[in-house]
Design a protein around this nucleic acid. Structure first.
Lengths: 201, 201
DNA sequence: CAAATTGTTGAATTTAAGTTAAGAAAACTC
DNA sequence: GAGTTTTCTTAACTTAAATTCAACAATTTG
């Protein structure tokens, strides 16, 4: 047995794995199996599968965002920050659990308000993150923006999102490196900086 | 009654509507209802719902692509072509059936090879379409590309895709006009052309 | 227009979930 | 460590969906 708080964390993690494997139409039993409990155990903690899935998706999204924030917080140089942020926004392989989660949600958002709200909020926060980096670069004289920082930030997040989908769909000629380079190519144009890519830790 | 060929066209159209309404987890009965027949009638023509859904998705995708090709074939000027192609690649409203279809598939592609292949092929053909337009513009001296045409084309399609998702998710401040302008902003930077937007017919 | 073919229905069957309740096992409390 | 509460399982129940099929209706063919 487990304390409710611990079990809930288990279930959220199991739900994330099950979602990445089976997509947003994942079954209660599939989540239960991933968690190593019976479906009834899940229903003891949640009124239904939907409630758990929302939790799992929300948590996955927060992690995706916060992980990047934490990594870049440790980087002082705006150029390096920008490059790292882009690198971390693209999935390295089609198996990337966090990005698979996000891709599944994209289709759900059309019908499910809660997912639409979550994704919208994630997008906006990512835009804010890029705006900060861009303005930091400007203030330090490193970037010379060819466009409004909001425009650049929105397009950078959009490119990240789109290439995430391509990589998850196993595009044969669009792998991680290529996608990052494509986004960097836009970023170079928009910031007037060569953005020589630093190796990621 | 109806001839098989006509009925199949009906069923594909019904499946597209049902998909747009219920998402990729659409039920056989929901498609049957949309078509005004019983589920048994569908199973007379298809071995299962999956077969019909693949057909419907494939057909929807082809239409999305071909409609644009046809519209732009009638436009001689590369600038106008580019602007129109971008305009037609973004959904005008969150209810846009074709783009909703495509968004649902994005998540499926992670698990379903056939959808991954279809989406990959659509992406590549769209990239080819933009490359043609860009190279036409260069040869006519209208565009002065700041980047490799393949890079620009890939990024343009990626931006279209991503803003499609945002609009389908009803982003409160990212409507059709805004999205088109954001993509055009990148296109301006990449082509060195002001791309004054023509009103769409 | 009768026979054959094709398309469709509705009812029966099967399958796969989700849901619920009784009670067992673990963990807490005093 | 006996009693209580919390967590979880088993098994029965319910619901919904897919599947199958006999019968029948519409269309085509000769």
């Amino acid at each position: 047995m487990a304390k409710t708080s611990e079990r809930k964390a288990d279930l959220i993690s199991a739900a994330q794995r099950a979602l990445a494997e089976h997509g947003s139409a994942v079954r209660l039993n599939q989540v239960a199996e991933a968690a190593g409990v019976t479906s009834s155990a899940i229903l003891y903690h949640y009124t239904g599968i939907e409630e758990l899935l929302v939790e799992a998706n929300r948590a996955g999204m927060e992690r995706f965002y916060n992980d990047r924030l934490n990594v870049i917080a440790a980087i002082a140089d705006p150029t390096e920050r920008l490059v790292h942020t882009i690198s971390l926004g693209v999935p390295r392989t089609p198996e990337d659990e966090e990005v698979r989660l996000l891709c599944s949600l994209g289709g759900e958002a059309a019908r499910n308000t809660i997912y639409a709200v979550l994704l919208t909020s994630l997008y906006d926060r990512q835009v804010g993150m890029y705006q900060n980096i861009l303005e930091l670069g400007v203030s330090q004289g490193e970037f010379h923006l060819a466009q409004d920082p909001l425009t650049i930030a929105r397009n950078l997040v959009a490119l990240e999102d789109a290439y995430g989908y391509r990589i998850i769909a196993k595009h044969p000629t669009l792998d991680y490196q290529t996608a990052v380079e494509l986004i960097l190519d836009y970023a170079r144009l928009a910031t007037g900086h060569t953005l020589v890519q630093q190796p990621r830790n």
